[in-house]
Nucleic acid binder design. Structure first.
Length: 288
DNA sequence: CACTTGACCTGTCCGC
DNA sequence: TGCGGACAGGTCAAGT
């Protein structure tokens, strides 16, 4: 679920809340959350001050004054939720969260800060991870060495995108979009939405997609990612922002999770199938 | 090498 | 009501 727009939304929220705070206590379920940790992570984090919060692809980085960074992947069900020492989220409260009292049974890591606030890393399915890595060494980790360009960057022209996609010319266009070494940050939601926008059938092989349609896909992908960031991301089940609130993009979705409903463009009933091992939503007429 | 499938997990939903 | 199984989706390892 957390794809580029969701991780970007969390990054912006934490970027407003965390910098300047010092970590005063840590609880965690090492080694599940901190695989292959070389240090006593909790001890190592104490008295570190948060310097900045950044994002690359679907990965969040909390940069610390110790010259180390917490590198975090939320995978499918991960959440990072900040709560001040006084927040109470009873029903009807204007700041009511999607989730209840924290920590709960999905909480895997808790950071407490010197202002009394807590940051909870919740992750029902335990696919997510955190790593404590020297900030200077982050570009060297395997994932970042292989990951493709940021689709919202100025350098990401349609020609650049075409070149990236052609590295997987014999696979279908949806699998190529989902491949993080081709383009960074695209997941199932925005693959389906952008392919619908460009009127491309997801099973089409990359080498068979004409340049004109790659241009359409480039615009559709950037538009849908930007729209979703503007709406605070997509919430299917688990995703919430740094304050525990769900995203609003899915009310604007054209095909994702809309099987059985009419295509907003032509009225044909949207179908669900399986492409690249994922649930895939298409208009059978627009994307024939 | 290029590409596809299965494993990792847990909660939810559907059919019997 | 209970129970088994499919499904959800990001990434890496293993398989074809």
């Amino acid at each position: 679920m957390p794809e580029l727009p969701e991780v970007e939304t969390v990054k912006r929220g934490l970027g407003r809340l965390l910098p300047g705070l010092t970590i005063s206590a840590v609880t965690h379920d090492n080694p599940k959350s901190f695989p292959n940790a070389e240090h006593d992570v909790a001890q190592f984090l104490l008295q570190s001050k948060v310097v900045d919060v950044t994002r690359r692809a679907k990965v969040l980085m909390i940069e610390l004054s110790s010259k180390y960074s917490l590198v975090i992947h939320l995978k499918m069900t991960g959440q990072l939720v900040y709560r001040s020492d006084t927040e109470k989220f009873g029903a009807g409260h204007p700041n009511a969260s999607l989730i209840g009292a924290l920590p709960d049974k999905s909480t895997r890591v808790t950071l407490m800060f010197d202002n009394g606030a807590h940051l909870y890393f919740n992750d029902q399915r335990k696919f997510g991870w955190m790593r404590l890595i020297p900030t200077a060494e982050i570009p060297q980790i395997d994932f970042f060495k292989r990951v493709g360009p940021e689709p919202l960057s100025d350098e990401f022209t349609w020609q650049v995108m075409h070149g990236c996609l052609l590295r997987r010319k014999n696979t279908n266009i949806k699998a190529a979009l989902l491949d993080q070494s081709v383009i960074a940050g695209v997941g199932n939601i925005y693959a389906d939405e952008s392919l619908w926008g460009a009127k491309i059938n997801p099973t089409m092989l990359v080498k068979d997609v004409p340049g004109k349609q790659i241009q359409s896909l480039h615009k559709a992908l950037r538009d849908v990612l930007q729209l979703s960031i503007d709406k605070g991301g997509s919430t299917v089940q688990h995703y919430v922002d740094a304050e525990g609130k769900p995203g609003k993009y899915l009310t604007f979705a054209n095909v994702f999770r809309r099987e059985g409903q009419p295509c907003p463009r032509c009225g044909t009933i949207i179908e669900k199938s399986r492409v690249a091992g994922r649930g895939t939503h298409t208009c059978p007429v627009c994307q024939s």
